[in-house]
């Protein structure tokens, strides 16, 4: 903490309004930037994943080399769309709005999930984080890592509640008609799997899409939903998320160590959340936020 104006004593001496203003001023420094890295990430990730199919089918690349790449591609497909869901690339009315929507729709193709449904249910998650009935991601909560894994696998079984929460959320906000997107995505997904399987390419379909999607779903749920919201009991603005120090580092934990900044200021691009978090940390500690392993005092 180099800035003397940001010592705990100095911050505690500020009026609530002054503290709010300081927090917003710091957060504002990191907003209104077009995250070109996320745009490049979205499009290149999709291109790599799409290129795996002909490369494998025409024997230019072993399926065993392509499989881990496909897992990586599917796991990396969600976050650029997440930037678009929050209109971080370009808000409505901005000349680059088309790019925001293009990234939103295209990047999640490997994930086989529709942008409009993801966006609307995600907004409900932000509006009602950790609410047992209203947060569509609430069911992801579990007491520890292993309980999460077991829960994640069981939730997506045919009788599991994985998709019901999203359907219910869309109905609640009067956007059930957008579930047609989910239907179409699922039709294309199983259509590709079935066609590949019955033309002698079942293993390729399984290792380029079906299994990577399952692995990526678990990974994304763990780092984007479970870890930053655990234990998932607080619902107020400064308590609904936490920061944490990941054993696998910031890249492999998908930047979610600083998810608390995202919930407080969703328009800050993912790439800027580490810097924003470290600058905001003294204020967040005063607010009673759980800053996890980043806390200066025990």
């Amino acid at each position: 903490m180099n800035n003397p104006a940001m010592t705990k004593e100095a911050l505690l001496a500020l009026s609530p309004d002054a503290l709010d203003a300081l927090e917003r001023k710091i957060a504002g420094k990191y907003m209104h930037r077009v995250p070109w890295g996320a745009v490049a990430w979205a499009l290149s990730n999709l291109m790599v994943w799409l290129s795996l199919w002909p490369l494998v089918l025409f024997d230019y690349l072993s399926i065993w080399v392509a499989f881990p790449i496909a897992v990586l591609n599917v796991a990396l497909s969600y976050l650029p769309s997440h930037e678009a869901q929050h209109s971080i690339i370009a808000r409505e009315g901005h000349p680059l709005r088309w790019l925001n929507e293009l990234v939103g729709h295209l990047s999640v193709i490997p994930f086989a999930q529709p942008y409009r449904v993801l966006k609307n249910t995600h907004m409900e998650h932000h509006a009602h984080s950790n609410h047992p009935e209203l947060d569509p991601d609430y069911a992801v909560h579990a007491k520890d890592d292993w309980a999460f894994l077991k829960n994640s696998i069981l939730r997506r079984q045919p009788a599991g509640p994985a998709q019901k929460a999203y359907g219910d959320a869309m109905a609640r906000i009067g956007k059930s008609h957008m579930l047609i997107d989910a239907l179409l995505f699922n039709l294309v997904f199983i259509g590709v799997l079935f066609t590949m399987a019955w033309t002698g390419h079942a293993i390729e379909a399984a290792l380029l899409w079906w299994l990577p999607r399952h692995i990526a779903q678990t990974y994304i749920q763990y780092y984007l939903s479970w870890a930053p919201h655990h234990p998932g009991v607080r619902q107020e603005r400064y308590g609904q998320t936490r920061s944490f120090k990941s054993k696998v580092g910031n890249l492999l934990s998908m930047g979610m160590q600083y998810h608390i900044v995202h919930h407080l200021y969703p328009r800050i691009p993912l790439s800027s959340t580490p810097a924003a978090f470290h600058e905001l940390k003294p204020i967040l500690e005063i607010r009673g936020c759980d800053v996890g392993g980043w806390a200066e005092t025990p």
């Binding site: 199983i190 293993i203 079906w210």
Partner: peptide, 26 residues
């Protein structure tokens, strides 16, 4: 129709079946 199409039994026969056959062969 959609309910049947997305049912486990159809997925079992439509995908897991030929996938298992390819694994047996491989």
């Amino acid at each position: 129709f959609v309910k049947v199409l997305f049912s486990p039994i159809v997925f079992g026969l439509g995908f897991i079946g030929p996938l298992s056959a390819e694994i047996i062969t491989a």
